[in-house]
Design a protein around this nucleic acid. Structure first.
Lengths: 256, 256
DNA sequence: ACCCGTGTTGTTGTGCACAACATAAGAAAA
DNA sequence: TTTTCTTATGTTGTGCACAACAACACGGGT
């Protein structure tokens, strides 16, 4: 049972008890989505509605509500008489999502950019520091969490709400593949550290772009990193999908 | 009770009886979405789950499933104890959606374009003819339907499924504003005819671009038309929102 | 040994009754 | 007359029992 981080204490106040119907819904939704994206629920895993209902202390009905929404977002797939199955994602199909994410990342800097004030800069500086101090720990879960948090922060650079929503949707569709691919590799530790350093650099670059108020540049940096990130994932996936395979001569991504 | 056009006879065969759970779901979903976008359900109108359940010959439960999905797509808004309300859309908020749609339209021609074969060309020629013969009838409903159909055809120019899905979503969010704005204007007939002619030209241009296999050009044409369409809507909305207002000297869009 | 039909089990989908909630009307008091 | 509290009414949200459906195991036949 994974620890719950209150990533989005949004609507009311997110206290455990005493919450309206909408609060319950959001809470269950956020929780399940996070679990799916952090691979607490593995792809192709079957979820039982009744189990979830019991865990959250409600009946199946509100749980089904959440499942419908998650299915609409492509993270789940309910089949009558079979079960509710976590979507499996393969690099091939994800190529299209990444293609789109790349373009959208650039748009974040162009479409309705928010005014850059000190508070915003401070938030970037803060997450940059947290990112630096994280590199030492080398915890993939922690990395995924900060990555997620940074995404939300970057996404808040545009005031174009539809763009934010779409980007968020696509992000949650793709973010799983990273953990999935990485965990399959032989050079797990090495690759992980490599990704840490690269991400650290991305955060640093974008933070500085924001400091200068150049959101277009921030968008370009982000675009480049998303594109390169997928290239690394695809290479890694192609060269070492089976971890008990014979070692290939060329070490996949490796540092820089 | 609006006539039902079988726009997407997709999964099984869409015969009225004998359909699985998934077929029912899709049927109700498509129907409701169409009604919302064709303004059969006006913005801010309250829908009663029980009425819908009775109409479709099911209980409230499957209807609620559909409503949840429509709410997730921003077309509905369920409030506990109040009702299920059709989202109201104002030109101001829609500006952001259009900003995004404009960019995505261009991407349709760039990202994973489909190979242009004779069958595809034929479909464009066919819809172009239907469009030509429609201009005489001047039926706004018919226009909205062909517009919708053309959107789907244009959208099929990319094989990037996420892009198709996102575009579709945004299209259904914005398409209502056209009918809503147009119906408020004094120069209703004039404006309508103007829009017909413009749309006719758009279809012609894009069809020819497709004939030549230049999907990038098709994307640019589409982008330009979406952008201009919104400009006209905004102008019309600003100059003559109240139809019983004193007539302003400048006739809003007018032809050309 | 293999194949096919059948029952058994487990899951999601549906229907219905009730709770939670919001709104509006009405009555009582100032 | 105005205000405020109470009550009535209508809606969505929830819980639970059952139907529909798919996968699996088992047994009888070949």
């Amino acid at each position: 049972m994974p620890e719950e981080l209150s990533l989005a204490a949004s609507t009311t106040g997110a206290r455990p008890a005493d919450e309206g119907a909408r609060g319950r819904f959001d809470r269950i939704y956020q929780t399940l989505r996070r679990r799916i994206c952090l691979l607490d629920y593995a792809p192709d895993e079957r979820l039982r509605e009744e189990d979830l209902a019991e865990e959250f202390g409600v009946s199946r009905t509100p749980v089904r509500r959440v499942l419908v929404k998650l299915e609409a977002e492509g993270l789940l797939r309910s089949v009558h008489g079979v079960g509710t199955i976590v979507t499996d994602i393969e690099v091939g199909a994800l190529a299209q999502v990444y293609e789109l994410r790349v373009e959208l990342a650039e748009l974040v800097g162009k479409l309705s950019p928010v005014p850059v004030d000190d508070a915003l800069k401070a938030r970037f500086r803060e997450i940059r520091q947290r990112c630096d101090s994280m590199v030492r720990k080398s915890d993939p879960r922690e990395f995924a969490r900060i990555n997620m948090e940074f995404f939300h922060l970057f996404n808040s650079l545009t005031s174009n709400e539809p763009l934010r929503l779409v980007s968020e949707r696509l992000y949650y569709q793709t973010t799983r593949i990273w953990l999935k691919t990485a965990s399959r590799l032989r050079e797990y530790e090495q690759l992980l550290n490599n990704e840490f350093v690269i991400f650290q650099r991305e955060v640093a670059d974008i933070t500085e772009a924001v400091e200068q108020g150049d959101l277009v540049a921030a968008g370009h940096v982000r675009r480049a990193h998303i594109s390169m990130s997928f290239s690394r994932i695809r290479q890694a996936s192609e060269s070492g999908t089976r971890r008990d395979d014979k070692p290939t001569g060329s070490a996949p991504p490796a540092h820089a």
